[in-house]
């Protein structure tokens, strides 16, 4: 069994494998498929509860992933934000000195979640400018 605690390096290797098979395009196709097929829980929560559903979804996953983060929801302003101070995924890849993270690893968070949230009418922004240091920022707004 590949433990769930070993998944992130296996995931990064998958992106590299797909990239070798069909360039970044093949990786993007996988992310799109994963978003459509695997993120039903986020889709359902965001559809039923709006930004509060986003808060509920990420409060569960980010605590289980032991992330270092600040997450806020202001329902009056219609804004949900995640300030990722140390991403558990990229952090894990940076810690493993014997493997090289997939060059565009962090972009999966852009494709996966944008593809769920924008069709539901939310505005999704992600700042990946510091992602190689395991830091990023996500803002989801009501349109």
């Amino acid at each position: 069994m590949i433990s769930c605690t070993e998944f992130i390096p296996a995931y990064s290797e998958l992106f590299k494998f797909l990239d070798k098979k069909g360039d970044k395009e093949a990786v993007m196709r996988f992310w799109e498929n994963l978003s459509d097929s695997f993120l039903g829980n986020l889709r359902d929560l965001a559809e039923r509860k709006g930004l509060a559903g986003c808060f509920e979804y990420w409060s569960h996953s980010l605590t289980e992933e032991a992330a270092d983060f600040r997450m806020s929801l202001d329902e009056d302003k219609g804004v949900f934000e995640i300030e990722m101070r140390y991403c558990p995924s990229m952090g894990r890849l940076l810690k493993e000195k014997h493997i090289e993270p997939y060059e565009f690893y962090c972009e999966h968070c852009d494709t996966l979640y944008r593809r769920v949230l924008e069709p539901l009418g939310f505005k999704y922004e992600i700042d990946l400018s510091n992602c190689k240091d395991a830091r990023c920022k996500v803002i989801v707004k009501n349109n």
């Binding site: 806020s72 929801l73 202001d74 140390y86």
Partner: peptide, 14 residues
Amino acid sequence: KIKVIDCKQSDNEY
């Protein structure tokens, strides 16, 4: 209507 969660890595098990 405002909710905040602030967690350090050591607050939770991975």
